[in-house]
Design a protein around this nucleic acid. Structure first.
Length: 271
DNA sequence: ATGGTAGTTTCACTA
């Protein structure tokens, strides 16, 4: 029996954080496959050398100038799979590869701006459209029974205890009913398992993001669970067999010098 | 009800 540890992390600029933040994390967590979001650089600007020094030799990078961008670094060979057009603005927000026989999707879902009304906020309309395209895509493929892992910054905190205050965030983008229902529909379309909530009791608060806009994020602890790892039904036992020890939210990373506002999340699959 | 911070496209925008 072998294992595969997959990490997802919105790093908010890969060039700024590869050496000081990501390298020490890799040393500690030792993920086999590292999925990044918000790399904020062009594909050719990705600091591949730094990741080679961390032990990665396979890369799939989808960048653009200054904003968004996703990347996968892996110890195992990656097979490039054709991209799907989830983003009507053609922003670099998704990539998919096959690694060790598993189809891995890395997503950076649009944040959606501040105003949760698609009629007056095009950013929110874009987010809902992106979700809708994801739902239709996985619905179309639901009869395939492929081994899939979906990770990334989904920019939605679906459960009541995925936010510091359900009541106070119902009208805040990331936790509005239209978004959480949209994410539920997408999960149902593929029959995916939200690994965090499959392993951690519903009443336990879980966060992966804390705003930069707080004097003391630890004291106020107004977090949200925006970063997710989902597996297809075919991988349920491989994902859950080892229990809670196989799933980690590395919240200490939020307390580092010059941190990202998101922390990494890892899952070790038993293959 | 407001503003707070961080990063890059920078005296403006996204998150």
């Amino acid at each position: 029996m072998s294992s595969l540890t997959i990490a997802t992390w919105n790093v908010n600029s890969v060039r700024l954080r590869a050496q000081p933040l990501i390298a020490p994390f890799v040393e500690q967590a030792s993920p086999d496959v590292l999925c990044l979001q918000e790399i904020k650089c062009r594909t050719e600007e990705f600091p591949e050398k730094t990741f080679r020094e961390m032990g990665y030799s396979h890369f799939h990078v989808r960048g653009m100038k200054g904003m968004h961008g996703v990347a996968i670094a892996s110890r195992y060979p990656l097979e490039d799979l054709p991209d799907e057009d989830f983003c009507r603005a053609s922003e670099a927000r998704h990539q998919r590869v096959r690694v060790k026989g598993i189809e891995l999707h890395n997503f950076y879902v649009p944040a959606g701006g501040d105003e949760p009304d698609p009629d007056i906020n095009p950013r929110f309309a874009h987010k809902l459209d992106f979700l809708d395209r994801m739902t239709r895509y996985f619905d179309r493929r639901s009869n395939e029974d492929a081994d899939m892992v979906l990770v990334g910054d989904f920019n939605i905190a679906p459960h009541e205890n995925d936010v510091w205050s359900h009541k106070q965030l119902l009208k805040v983008v990331s936790h509005t009913p239209v978004e959480t229902a949209g994410l539920d529909a997408m999960r149902d379309a593929g029959g995916f398992i939200d690994v965090a909530r499959a392993l951690i009791p519903e009443d336990e608060k879980i966060y992966t993001w804390w705003s930069y806009r707080s004097r003391d994020y630890r004291a106020s602890n107004r977090g949200r669970r925006l970063d997710h790892i989902w597996v297809s039904p075919s991988l349920r036992s491989q994902a859950l067999a080892a229990g809670r020890n196989a799933f980690t939210i590395w919240d200490e990373e939020r307390g580092r010098e010059k941190p990202s506002d998101h922390v990494p999340v890892t899952l070790t699959l038993s293959l």
